[in-house]
Simulated assay, not measured.
Amino acid sequence: MAGAHRAGAGGPADPPQGDGGDDGDGPTPDSGSKQRSFWKELPLLIGIALVLALLIKTFLVQAFSIPSDSMQDTLQRGDRVLVDKLTPWFGSTPSRGEVVVFHDPGGWLPENPPASSNPVVRGIQKGLSFIGLMPSADEKDLIKRVIGVGGDEVSCKGSGPVMVNGKPLNEPYVYPGNTACTPGMPFDVKVPKGHIWVMGDHRQDSLDSRFHMTQAGHGFVPDSDVVGRAIVIAWPINRWDWLSIPSTFSQPGINALNTGVPAAAGVAGALPLVLVRRRRLLRNSSTEG
């Protein structure tokens, strides 16, 4: 009786000895349950990874493969560069000296080769290109260096140097053995607002702005066609390097022609305010007198 009284008053009787439950944590799930849980979560993890990859490719950074020799020696055929796509979303426009990726303005590239006839291969390519893991067969992008921006006067005669707003460029990035310009193809252009003038670093092997001056766009690339700035060589590892802006583009006076118009516009805009303030002061002084 005493034993029964203790069980009733103190709750359930103690578990039988040897059942492995003396640690108080309850039964431990077996490895089969863990395996099933992993396979249930795997589709969710894959989905999250794909969404993140798509967001990064769309708004932040995208990898591009270099398909030609037009940017040697800065970039080699087969290099992969990371392109900053974030700053254009905040209104940033291309600057002189930057290496940029841009969409074909029209007629710069030949027609793309036809897509694979295999529907499975075609579907995989479209899926991977959609999230930025491989280039699209439908995309027609180029990569060049920005030499002039809207408002700049860019010119070159003979073998160079290239002149920007009357300042000669010192271009150590030009391919060894090349001249700054192609002899027999002089140019003197005024870059329209909202456009850029681009040239490849391999000057004698680059179909850049110089070769499209007779087309509808006159060789200029709209800022809206710029995908972003190439900021780093990411692959192969032994060629890892930042793609910085050469110092020649920050030489004194190179902005002279660009800053004159905004400065004049600022003076013109401020003049009415000065006159109104002066008139107010004169009226106040006559009232006090």
Rank of each mutant, 00 (worst) to 15 (best):
L169C: 06
N165W: 01
G160F: 01
S155Q: 05
V154E: 09
P168R: 00
P172W: 08
G158A: 06
P161S: 02
P176Q: 09
P168F: 00
G166T: 05
G177H: 11
N170P: 02
N178A: 15
G177C: 08
D188M: 03
P161R: 04
N178K: 11
G166N: 04
V154W: 07
Y173N: 14
A180C: 08
G177Q: 10
V154P: 13
G160W: 06
T179K: 15
P186K: 05
K157A: 12
N178F: 09
G160C: 06
V154Q: 10
P186G: 10
N170H: 10
C156T: 01
P168C: 00
L169D: 01
P172M: 07
P172D: 09
T182A: 01
D188T: 04
N165G: 11
V154G: 13
P161W: 00
C181P: 12
G166L: 02
M163G: 07
T182S: 13
V162G: 05
E171I: 02
T179A: 14
S159R: 05
K167M: 10
K167H: 13
C181H: 12
V162M: 11
K157S: 14
P176S: 14
A180K: 15
S159W: 00
Y175H: 15
G158D: 10
S159M: 04
G166W: 03
V162R: 07
P161K: 06
G158N: 08
P176R: 06
C181S: 14
G158I: 00
G177W: 06
P168H: 01
N178E: 13
M163R: 07
F187G: 10
C181W: 09
D188S: 14
L169V: 06
N178T: 09
T179R: 13
P186E: 12
E153K: 14
Y173L: 12
P172K: 08
V174L: 04
C181L: 13
Y173D: 11
P176N: 08
S155P: 04
D152V: 08
L169Y: 04
V164Y: 01
G158R: 03
D152Q: 10
P172H: 10
N165Q: 09
P176I: 02
V164K: 01
K157E: 15
V154K: 09
V174M: 07
P186T: 05
Y173M: 12
K157C: 00
P168T: 02
F187R: 08
G184F: 01
M163D: 08
P183H: 11
G160H: 08
P161F: 01
E153M: 08
P161L: 00
T179P: 13
V154H: 09
